[in-house]
Design a protein around this nucleic acid. Structure first.
Lengths: 206, 206
DNA sequence: ACGAAAATTGGCCAACCAGCCAATTCTTGA
DNA sequence: TCAAGAATTGGCTGGTTGGCCAATTTTCGT
């Protein structure tokens, strides 16, 4: 019995490679041939698994999204209180493994295409909806109902803004800097929770 | 005597048109021919004024940057107090004329190229330095010296994050929403200033 | 072992594009 | 008016890319 068909393996490999190429080449410079070459395969095989370049990078976006989602889920499992759940979301978005300049460049390249690629826009909507839902749930006991949406938008915007800083600043930004900003925001916006405690043990939410 | 040579007029027109094309086509889809066509000119004339496509869009970035800078300067002139100066910077970044989806799309396209185009990175550095300088000056009497850089980074990130939301959200974001978020941030981070007063008269800092 | 199906190759093609340039039109100063 | 120079045209070219496909190799069930 075959659990994983070769086709599934190839699909996963290629979308991973496509995402890597995106990190260094950007959307315009990322050609099907470069993806094939980096994967050690021929150009034809890429088109065998993805009917178009567009679809290939659509799956690359799903890939990066899955990485981020898993980081958040892992931290969510360990969280026991609403504060911990909220911090799990934030900390997951600045996981040291993913909050890097190359990752940010790939993310930016994809974001820039969203307005013109309905499929990417669809993925973006799903990502956004999940983030909003997670935040609203965690905020339920922390913020009054009439302010929850507002605070959720503020947190989302600050996260995205810090990612942008990582990509655009000359010397980048450390995950600790970003988490410091988030803790600072939360300390002022949602007092009576000692948010700074989460900065002591970086990478952990429990 | 001729104040404005035709060459200068053309350069201004073309960089403006290049920026408009960027709004709808993105960086990959923005060809020299499309810019020429939209400008009602031939492809050759574009290369006559800009030695390369790269240089053309470098000037397009300067163009968009100049628009934003002027908006901030205009509000700065009317500001009399540090709070007003700080709000002038923020309000200028969400001027109703520029805080639109097409503008955001062009901005995103340029941001996504920054990592691979040293010239764009150079412009980006200048923009960032000016923003930082403006913010630190305005914050001098509002925030303790040891926290100024931190708050300046927070404000910058939140502004960029809200721009990103404008570009990525399905239904966009109004300038009022964005300014509401900024006022909310300032109210909690820099209390004892009635930031909400600035929301009464949208578009004005005085 | 064998044959069908899956996987893979490498090259072809049509489309597109940036850069270039010779020829033409327009502007301007004397 | 009339050159001289600036402005502009439009087509050419070399190079690249995405999509396609016929041919070949590999895998796998029987």
């Amino acid at each position: 019995m075959k659990l994983t068909r070769i086709s599934e393996i190839r699909r996963l490999e290629l979308r991973q490679v496509a995402y890597e190429v995106l990190q260094t080449e950007g959307m315009a410079g990322a050609t099907v041939e470069k993806v094939a070459q980096r994967a050690g395969a021929s150009k034809g095989i890429v088109h065998h698994y993805f009917k178009s370049k567009q679809q290939l990078f659509e799956h690359a976006m799903r890939h990066s999204n899955a990485l981020l989602r898993d980081e958040v889920i892992r931290r969510m499992r360990l969280a026991r209180t609403p504060e911990q759940r909220l911090w799990a979301i934030i900390d997951g978005n600045f996981s040291a493994d993913f909050f890097t300049r190359p990752m940010c460049h790939a993310w930016l390249s994809l974001c820039a295409e969203v307005p013109r690629e309905p499929q990417l826009a669809r993925i973006q909507r799903v990502v956004h909806a999940r983030m909003r839902s997670n935040l609203l749930t965690a905020l339920r006991s922390l913020v009054g109902e009439e302010q929850r949406e507002h605070v959720a938008l503020g947190i989302t915007s600050l996260i995205d803004g810090l990612w942008l800083q990582m990509g655009l600043r000359s010397q980048g930004l450390s995950a600790a800097d970003a988490l410091g900003q988030m803790a600072d925001y939360l300390s002022h916006r949602i007092p009576n929770v000692a948010w700074s405690q989460y900065l002591q043990r970086p990478g952990s939410a429990a």
